[in-house]
């Protein structure tokens, strides 16, 4: 079923990865730690009906069905670079809408400064949850200005098709200038808050994963370099390519971090 998303100029000039590449090589630890585990296991997750609790410092808190969230929403196609903290990358034609639109609809209260997100936990269909790979539910967070940035979207599709479960159906976050794990999948809760929310990888290993986790070739992961990345799809002899500051979105987002030491706020 084609979603009929409106084309945009985002990512013009980028060569997207194939649908097969994007949907067969995933990190979604709820479904296992192997890259092909999500594609193999996530099919068992029911994503319809689906609802999202939106609460905290908002004017209209409540439980919103996906239909309500998508009602009157214009879906756009945006081709974004996607850079994993593990130093591989893809180019993905997402379909979605700006998170700012959703937040405006529920009315962000003036004291709110952060947005917290939570992924579904369904142990019966999620072997990784049963094995306690991480402290589930998976949680993520953004500063409010990051969340309201026009590049930040909620994705519900890929290649104009509904987003497959292994990529975070029915709705996931996409923050293209941050490492992929910030772009939390299969969201069931969005909470506006006045304090920095906990994030899963930071809880698991604070030395390696900071709250910001902006793509930054000059700040290494303690266990590997972030200076280069391998674009998926190049085969056995793919050359590494240089990682771009803020994953190539420096012009758009560098201002959000003015005056911050990015090696401290990694």
């Amino acid at each position: 079923a084609s979603l009929g998303a409106r084309k945009t100029s985002y990512g013009s000039g980028l060569e997207p990865n194939t649908f097969e590449e994007i949907t067969s090589y995933n990190n979604f630890y709820e479904f296992g730690v192997g890259k092909d585990d999500p594609a193999q296991n996530a099919g068992a997750m029911q994503t319809s009906p689906w609802s999202v609790v939106i609460d905290g410092m908002v004017d209209r808190p409540g439980t919103y069905s996906m239909d309500q969230i998508l009602e009157g929403q214009t879906l756009e196609e945006r081709i974004y670079r996607f850079r994993c903290v593990e130093a591989w990358s893809m180019v993905i034609p997402w379909v979605g809408f700006e998170l700012a639109d959703l937040l405006d609809r529920v009315g962000v209260q003036s004291g709110a400064r952060y947005v917290a997100f939570e992924t579904a936990v369904i142990p019966e269909v999620m072997p990784g949850v049963r094995r306690r790979v991480l402290d589930f539910p998976y949680v993520e967070g953004l500063r409010l200005d990051e969340a309201m940035h026009p590049l930040t979207i909620m994705a519900t599709g890929i290649y104009d098709e509904p987003i497959p479960n292994q990529n975070g159906a029915p709705m996931r976050l996409v923050v293209p200038w941050k490492y992929g794990f910030k772009s939390i999948k299969s969201i069931v809760r969005i909470t506006l808050t006045d304090s920095e929310p906990p994030t899963s990888w930071n809880k698991a290993n604070a030395r390696e994963y900071g709250f910001y986790s902006n793509v930054n070739p000059t700040v290494d992961h303690p266990r590997w370099s972030q200076a280069t990345e391998r674009r998926i799809g190049g085969g056995l002899f793919a050359a590494r390519q240089e990682t771009l500051m803020f994953n190539g979105y420096e012009n758009e987002v560098a201002g959000l971090y003015e005056g911050m030491d990015l090696s401290v706020n990694y």
């Binding site: 097969e20 090589y25 890259k35 092909d36 591989w88 391998r230 998926i232 799809g233 085969g235 056995l236």
Partner: peptide, 18 residues
């Protein structure tokens, strides 16, 4: 395994898999 990697049998990221 090298043959698998060259022919798609190791998935879309054959270097890491190999």
């Amino acid at each position: 395994y090298l043959y698998l990697g060259l022919t798609g049998g190791l998935g879309v990221e054959p270097i890491e898999a190999l």
